[in-house]
Design a protein around this nucleic acid. Structure first.
Length: 507
RNA sequence: CGGGGCGUAGCGCAGCCUGGUAGCGCGCCAGCUUUGGGAGCUGGAUGUCGUGGGUUCGAAUCCCACCGCCCCGACCA
């Protein structure tokens, strides 16, 4: 087969962005749809990517004083009823278990038997059950702060799903903490938001806007919700992580009380924060190109893949030995304080197929090693952040010694490119007309990529927010925390505005 | 749940308008050839044409209902 496709992924981003996303996920073998509607099977390459994320985040949580625990999947239904806003927010999307036994039915199938006294809700999030446990664990101010995280699956019965971005069941971590004072809980909320920002930018190479949510976008039951918002290549915003200051609402609902040093009984102040497998989707849509996935080195399950060229039997053992040597030398090198992750692809497959396979899987550095390289003590190197044809020979020792720097260069390059993209599609807008024009595609039938982030003034009125959402499907992604608050005039209401907020279409 | 598109071999699709008993590409299997590159040739295996009903001598094709998938909305991490 001759090479006729210009790119490995079809359609391209420009042709059909949603379809491109699905094809990238598939071509990289990250995940596929399951027999159960809305759920996904995460395949080994996708899961190892999630494992990399888990590993880094888990270390960051531990470094900030948190410990892991595990709470049950099932929540007694009446627990959900404890916090009014929380019920309202999640009731619609809860899966409910009502039976505990199956028996044969007359048609030869199975039917549920043994109804439960009280139905169990499959956790959509664990505030309520963790709150119930915290209430038992917290007696004294000496028990605070209580800093717990759990890695778990949760279920939210969504109407519309997309691999990684929104699935019925997804994997995540949820941190839950209890504190003696509002100030400490607010500090915790900010601290974890900063952990997420660091992770997104330094590891995922995904620049984010950090800010607070408006009331309408707030977590059900939270007093304040903060998020990191990233821009995907179709210029839509992706909420990539959230951190909530829950005030005393859940403490009141669950009875998390403690005695102060003075002997008074007080309600604790709680927080919760989480990121999910949605981050994988965000990673895909931030860096990938029309040839498939592009992984930032710090999270790539394999940072370098070695592909021995084994055409002639006569050279086979020598090439393999050389390959092993290069692999060992690379593994002895470090990048970002860790040994370089090297994978040797020994599969009996045609060279071109193998190369394209790893391009589509996004491995940062590809190395082809054949007899010719061996003879010259060299390697043949390709970078995922460059074109597939842009590759060349290099002395072995030089390549090995420079691998850490090369990976750093790729990582930094991806972040810089993503930052430039975000900056390019962020506008300061001061008139209603400009705003509407910015978010209206020229061709409504086949909308071309348009819009982005708009920094505009807002008077703080939810009605104004709702009206914009209604008209343009554009929402306030966050009220940015960074930078000086610059007062101005809300172009939608003509009223004064304390500062600019970030508007965008969102996932 | 509304609007649009689509369910035919493992994957991607043609065939449907104008009914006659299923085809292409890739993949897979075998053999030979090739080898710094998503290989070439030859041969081969693989389909209750989403499900159920109807019309008909005959349905992938026409009609009805249902199910599922994708996109755009409503809802959401």
């Amino acid at each position: 087969m001759s090479t006729k496709n210009q790119s490995a992924i079809s359609p391209t981003r420009a042709e059909d962005y949603p379809e491109w996303y699905q094809q990238v996920v598939r071509a990289a073998d990250l995940a596929e749809n399951s027999p159960v509607r809305g759920c996904m099977v995460i395949k080994p390459w996708g899961y190892s990517l999630w494992e990399q994320m888990q590993r880094v985040l888990d270390a960051m949580f531990k470094a900030t004083g948190h410990v892991n625990a595990y709470f049950p999947l099932f929540i007694p239904m009446h627990f959900l009823e404890k916090e009014a806003e929380h019920v309202e927010g999640f009731a619609k999307e809860c899966a409910v278990v009502t039976h505990h036994r199956l028996e044969a039915d007359p048609q030869g199938g199975l039917r549920p038997a043994g109804p439960l006294d009280e139905p169990l809700v499959v956790r959509p999030t664990s505030e309520t059950i963790i709150g119930a446990m915290f209430a038992k664990w917290v007696q004294s101010y000496r028990d605070l702060p209580l800093l717990i995280n759990q890695w778990a699956n949760v279920v939210r019965w969504e109407l519309r799903t997309r691999l990684f971005l929104r699935t019925t069941e997804f994997l995540w971590q949820e941190g839950h903490t209890a504190h003696a004072t509002a100030g400490e809980a607010e500090e915790e909320t900010a601290r974890m938001l900063e952990v997420y920002r660091t992770f997104a930018e330094d590891y995922m190479a995904m620049p984010v806007c950090v800010g607070e949510k408006t009331a309408s976008e707030r977590f059900p039951g939270a007093e304040r919700t903060f998020s990191i918002e990233a821009m995907m290549q179709d210029r839509k915003a992706l909420q990539a992580g959230t951190s909530h200051f829950l005030g005393q609402k859940f403490a009141r609902a669950s009875g998390i009380k403690f005695q102060t040093e003075a002997g008074r009984e007080e309600l604790a102040w709680t927080t919760s924060w989480g990121v999910s497998t949605r981050l994988v989707g965000g990673l895909v849509m931030t860096h990938s190109d029309d040839d498939g996935l592009v992984l930032p080195p710090r999270l790539a399950p394999a940072q370098v893949v070695l592909m021995p060229v084994l055409h002639q039997e006569a050279h086979r053992s020598a090439v393999l030995a050389y390959c092993d040597r290069v692999a060992a030398e690379l593994r002895a090198q470090t990048y970002a304080g860790e040994p370089v992750r090297v994978l040797v692809d020994m599969r009996d497959q045609r060279g071109g197929e193998k190369v394209w396979g790893w391009i589509k899987k996004g491995v940062p550095v590809r190395v082809e090693i054949g007899p010719r390289d061996l003879a010259q003590d060299a390697v043949f190197v390709g970078r995922r952040d460059r074109g597939p044809k842009e590759r060349g020979g290099q002395p072995r020792a030089e390549f090995v010694a420079g691998i850490g720097a090369l990976l750093a260069e790729i990582q930094d390059g991806l972040l810089a490119r993503a930052r430039a993209f975000q900056a390019e599609h962020t506008r300061i807008l001061d008139s209603r007309d400009d705003f509407y024009a910015y978010f209206t595609p020229a061709n409504a039938e086949q909308p071309e990529p348009h819009g982005g982030f708009a920094l505009a003034h807002w008077n703080g009125d939810p009605a104004v927010e709702a009206q914009i959402k209604e008209a343009l499907n554009v929402t306030i992604r966050c009220i940015p925390l960074a930078g000086e608050a610059e007062p101005g005039t809300c172009p939608f209401s003509g009223q004064p505005s304390p500062r600019r907020v970030v508007f965008a279409k969102a996932y």
